[in-house]
């Protein structure tokens, strides 16, 4: 940069910025499946992974599908509105895990059922005081805000 005239410096920066943005966009687009943290139930329905492949699935826990099975195993269905996949999991669940809420699970797809080895809860970006919700519930006005899918 030292020996260059001001006009040429601006040109160099402009070219560098364009090259940087273009390469970022190309890499980001080409690797989007690797960069995305999880796959949706629809993607899994379209292209079912092999039973040996460990991957993450993400979506909402379907209302009314959560069942505490025999022993420690729990089962539920994860949905993105279009498709849904049954999940089985044995282990501790995070605080935010509930029906109608977002979750991300790691595991394998065996005979159409997702055998999860780890379950994470996904938080939507809504923040509401507890008291307000309690009052709304008492009045019967409150409906779960995730009734409409908000997996951003």
């Amino acid at each position: 940069m030292k020996g260059l005239k001001k006009k040429r410096r601006i040109q160099v920066i402009a070219v560098a910025a364009v090259a940087l943005i273009a390469s970022t966009a190309l890499i980001g687009y080409a690797m989007r499946d690797g960069i995305n943290f999880f796959r949706s139930p629809s993607q899994i329905a379209d292209t079912p992974p092999a039973p040996s492949e460990v991957f993450r699935i993400g979506g909402l826990v379907e209302e009314g599908s959560l069942a505490r099975g025999q022993g420690e195993t729990i089962t539920f269905r994860v949905t993105d509105g279009a498709a849904s996949v049954p999940v089985a999991y044995a282990g501790a669940l995070p605080d935010l895990f509930a029906e109608g809420q977002g979750m991300v699970g790691t595991g394998r797809l065996v005979d159409g059922q997702f055998m999860a080895s780890e379950i994470l809860a996904k938080h939507d970006e809504s923040y509401m005081p507890k008291e307000v919700i309690d009052i709304l519930k008492e009045q019967g006005v409150y409906v779960t805000p995730d009734a409409e899918v908000s997996m951003n």
């Binding site: 980001g28 989007r32 960069i35 995305n36 943290f37 999880f38 796959r39 949706s40 993400g58 991300v104 994470l120 996904k122 938080h123 939507d124 970006e125 809504s126 923040y127 509401m128 005081p129 307000v132 997996m151 951003n152």
Partner: peptide, 27 residues
């Protein structure tokens, strides 16, 4: 990143000027 790759774990922006209010006023 949440806008480019929408299947992530981190929630989207809680604060933004154009989106609807996600955070109650008390917070």
């Amino acid at each position: 990143a949440v806008n480019f790759w929408n299947q992530g774990l981190h929630q989207g922006a809680s604060l933004s000027l154009d989106a609807e209010e996600n955070v109650a006023d008390v917070f």
